[in-house]
Measured scan of single mutants.
Amino acid sequence: KKIKIKIKVYNPETKEVLELEIEVSEEEAEELAKKLAEELEKKGYKIEEVEI
């Protein structure tokens, strides 16, 4: 079964909002969402919402 992940991120420095969407297997979904959120935060983005 495929799971659709939508991530909306906001960069306070540039006032930019990015929306990302990807489909992955159920097993990958939670781990991938967690890794993406961590990487984006390292780059200065503030995570507003992660929906699985």
Rank of each mutant, 00 (worst) to 15 (best):
E38Y: 07
K34H: 04
G44C: 03
I22V: 14
V24I: 04
K8G: 03
I22S: 03
E27H: 14
E30T: 08
Y45A: 00
E27Q: 08
K34C: 14
V9P: 00
E28V: 09
E28L: 13
E31D: 05
K2N: 14
I47N: 01
L32N: 05
E21M: 14
E21Y: 05
K35A: 06
L18A: 09
L40H: 02
A33W: 06
I3Q: 07
K8V: 05
E27G: 10
E38G: 07
E48K: 07
E41S: 13
L36I: 06
P12S: 12
E16C: 11
E41Y: 07
E48M: 14
E31Y: 08
E16M: 06
A29E: 03
A37L: 11
P12H: 06
E19R: 15
E31T: 13
K43T: 06
S25Y: 15
E31R: 05
Y45E: 01
K43H: 07
A37G: 06
E31P: 07
T14W: 03
T14C: 06
L32H: 07
K46W: 11
E21L: 15
N11R: 03
E48T: 13
L36S: 02
I5G: 00
P12A: 09
L32Y: 09
K15Q: 06
V17E: 10
I5Q: 00
L18Y: 13
I7K: 00
E49V: 08
L40V: 02
K43E: 08
K4T: 11
E31I: 08
A37K: 08
E31S: 10
E39Q: 09
K1N: 11
L40C: 09
K42Y: 04
P12L: 15
E13A: 13
V17F: 06
E49Y: 13
A37I: 10
Y45G: 01
Y45I: 02
Y10L: 10
S25G: 06
L36F: 13
E27W: 05
L36K: 03
I47P: 02
K6V: 10
E30G: 11
E16G: 08
S25I: 07
E21K: 09
E26F: 09
K8I: 11
K35H: 10
E39W: 06
L18I: 13
V17R: 09
L20R: 03
Y10G: 04
I7D: 00
K15P: 02
E39C: 13
K46L: 15
I47G: 00
E16P: 01
K43Y: 05
K2A: 05
E48V: 06
V24M: 01
I3F: 13
E30M: 12
V50D: 01
K1F: 11
L32V: 12
S25N: 14
K8Q: 04
A29F: 02
K4L: 09
A33K: 08
E48N: 08
K46D: 11
K8A: 02
K46C: 15
V9A: 08
V17Q: 13
E26Y: 11
K43N: 04
L18P: 00
K1R: 08
L18C: 15
K2H: 05
I52F: 15
E28A: 11
A29G: 04
E19N: 10
V17L: 02
V9R: 01
V24Q: 02
I22Q: 10
T14L: 05
A33L: 04
E27I: 11
E38R: 08
V50A: 02
E51K: 06
N11T: 07
E13H: 11
G44D: 01
E38M: 15
E51M: 11
T14N: 07
T14K: 04
V17G: 06
K42R: 12
E38A: 09
E26S: 12
A37Y: 02
N11M: 08
P12F: 07
V17I: 13
N11D: 03
K1S: 11
V17H: 08
A33V: 06
L40D: 00
V9S: 12
I47D: 00
E49P: 01
E41I: 14
E41G: 09
E41F: 06
K46H: 09
K6F: 04
L18V: 04
L32W: 10
E19Q: 12
E27A: 15
I3C: 15
V17N: 06
E39L: 08
I22G: 02
E49D: 08
K15S: 07
V50M: 08
V9E: 00
L18M: 12
E28F: 06
K6P: 00
I22C: 15
E38Q: 11
T14Y: 04
Y10H: 14
K42S: 12
